[in-house]
Design a protein around this nucleic acid. Structure first.
Lengths: 189, 189
DNA sequence: TTTTAAAACTAACAAATGTTAGTTTTGTTT
DNA sequence: AAACAAAACTAACATTTGTTAGTTTTAAAA
């Protein structure tokens, strides 16, 4: 587990830099400098720059995948599921806001296999989200707005939390969950 | 979207590429290839890669600046102003969705002067937005949710329109405006 | 036809990039 | 103290990068 620790340190430092400038603009020398070592030394711990990116993105995408599947399989109505999804996004954002920047902005720089895997997970995530909203509308729990508009407006806010929440000092997680549920859902019911 | 002069064609092509891969990952050879010419030929029309980026971003930021100032100076209540802001974002998105990708994701690659200018405009934009929401709450037109959460959730959706709307076929601008106003504002009143 | 300006080209540059190879330092275990 | 593995180092590499210089092509005006 020793090399794994150092490796994770590198990945965390990379996530911070990727958030600031994006994957392509961050050089291995930038990353090494942030770690206080030389670029070549990074390769004692990681195989490539690409490995760092895929490590950041795939693990987060899998968190969302398992999260939404678990929520979707629960015996609750659409509104309760949407509330759980909001909490899921807030929890992941609290745990790894830096990495979410790469997930949102640098997924297209994944190489072929991981790119396909990521795109599959995102597609399935959105399909589940869409299905929940549709069921909610059919059950009369959600107003009959255009489904795509509901999915987009909700998801766009949740996906952008990573940019905004770390800068907020006076909003604690529980207050955020409560208010976000109000703001995003009260208009839909 | 008539091809004005050659420079504007290059900027438009660049905006498309920047949207796909981000500013840093697009090379001048990529751009030239998309234009069907050699990289060196680009420099008959533009001064630098940086000039292309600043041209895209600054013109859009100025559109939003003048737009929100004009809205804010009108004699209407907070809700009507927010409706106008939603329409502003939809109009700009329809006119230049590609450029908005750079505005959102590549502003940090602007060089010093333009970076400061952009950041000033964005700060002022958000300040006006925030002031409108605060007035609306004080006037009793908007529920007493946390101001920052309202500003963030609304703005995050509007700023992400460029990613989503070009892919929608069956939603025309007027329907979009109507539904977006409903989804974003009905929960707030 | 000649002239001219715009816009393309070829060739090259210095700097920056991700990465490899081989070596030395560091710190722990025997 | 000796041995060993982890993790740092120096030095270099082949490409790729944005950009410049100088030249040729294109097409319209004279």
């Amino acid at each position: 587990m020793k090399p794994e620790n150092r490796k994770q340190e590198i990945i965390n430092a990379a996530a911070v830099l990727f958030k600031e400038k994006g994957y392509s603009a961050v050089t291995m020398r930038d990353l090494a400098s942030a770690m206080g070592i030389k670029a070549a030394s990074l390769y004692n711990h990681i195989q490539s720059k690409q490995e760092i990116l895929s490590n950041i993105i795939i693990s987060l995408a899998e968190e969302f995948s398992t999260g939404i599947n678990s929520i979707n399989n629960s015996e609750t109505n659409a509104i309760q599921k949407l509330e759980k999804i909001i909490e899921l996004h807030i929890d992941v954002t609290l745990r790894n806001a830096d990495g979410l920047a790469s997930l949102n902005n640098d997924w297209m720089h994944l190489e072929e296999n991981n790119l396909l895997y990521y795109e599959k997970m995102r597609r399935e995530y959105e399909d589940i989200f869409r299905a929940i909203v549709k069921k909610g509308i059919r059950a009369g729990d959600i107003k009959t707005y255009d489904v795509e508009i509901i999915v987009f407006s909700t998801l766009s806010t949740l996906r952008t939390l990573y940019l905004w929440y770390p800068k907020q000092k006076k909003i604690n997680p529980e207050l955020l969950k409560h208010d976000m549920i109000s703001v995003l859902l009260k208009g839909l019911v």
